[in-house]
């Protein structure tokens, strides 16, 4: 779907982890229409460097306040520039873009790295009377700040770390089978590094569970015009991550 070009006003922009920042932007049109799993294409600077927008999943939106929340990892010049914005600065936000997740009653949210952002969003926009199970994969306990974003009574958080410094040692796939044995989930939602998403999709496939993956391909326009973010479908078609995704059924695409 197509979005709005909004000149948003920065309400908050703070570092919440070693290289992760949280930006809240007043962008009322997006805040009203956004859905979990959709994204905002942010133009970091109005000059020509950097030139392209940065696609960032909504980590939250609040229609009443008119705000959207973006959690971003500082990976290059663009995101570095984002950290320099202050309250009341203007930021060009294009959104909401993409399709979004379908959240069933019994859902398992799996996230790794900055892919946890849309899961934060999902945990705050669960269908009425629903509880969610959250499974987060960290490299080590330094990333524990992500878990704090889920502090609410409707979610049950599980953690794995690569080095075993927090939660269960290993990747999320290590605890996935036991989690799925204890609770009958209607669907797994996953976003994170590709190997993690592949692993989760594989387990979901073996258990016969539906699995929705949110892809993070390099993107050009975000609006379906340039075909820069194509992904191969299992049906032989090519899909546009920006418009047909970023959320796909894991059986639908090769990623």
């Amino acid at each position: 779907m197509s979005g709005y070009v909004e000149l948003g006003r920065v309400v908050e922009n703070e570092q919440i982890g070693s290289d992760v920042w949280c930006m809240v932007v007043y962008a009322p049109k997006q805040a009203k229409e956004a859905k979990v799993g959709q994204f905002c294409d942010v133009r970091v600077a109005m000059g020509t460097m950097p030139l392209l927008r940065r696609p960032i999943s909504y980590a939250g939106f609040n229609a009443q306040e008119g705000t959207i929340t973006l959690l971003y990892r500082v990976v290059g010049k663009g995101t570095e520039l984002m950290t320099q914005l202050s309250v009341d600065d203007t930021i060009d936000c294009l959104g909401p873009l993409g399709n979004g997740f379908t959240i069933p009653k019994r859902v398992l949210l799996v996230g790794g790295g900055v892919g946890i952002a849309p899961m934060v969003c999902a945990s705050n926009h669960l269908p009425e009377g629903t509880k969610a199970t959250v499974l987060l994969g960290f490299r080590n306990k330094e990333e524990a700040f992500w878990a704090d974003l889920f502090k609410q009574d409707k979610v049950d958080v599980h953690i794995t770390t690569d080095d075993g410094s927090l939660g269960t040692k290993g990747f999320p796939t290590a605890v996935l089978p036991s989690l799925c044995a204890n609770t009958k989930f209607d669907s797994i939602l996953v976003c994170g590094p590709t190997p993690m998403m592949k692993g989760v999709a594989q387990v979901a496939h073996e258990l016969g569970l539906s699995c929705q993956v949110s892809l993070e391909n390099r993107m050009g326009c975000g609006t379906g015009g340039c075909l820069g973010c194509a992904v191969d479908g299992q049906d032989g078609r090519r899909y546009k991550v920006c418009m047909d995704g970023p959320v796909f059924d894991s059986e639908e695409v090769g990623f």
């Binding site: 030139l51 050009g220 973010c229 194509a230």
Partner: peptide, 10 residues
């Protein structure tokens, strides 16, 4: 990968 950002270009 089909697109790459470069200085003031793509």
């Amino acid at each position: 990968t089909r697109v790459a950002e470069t200085p003031s270009g793509m």
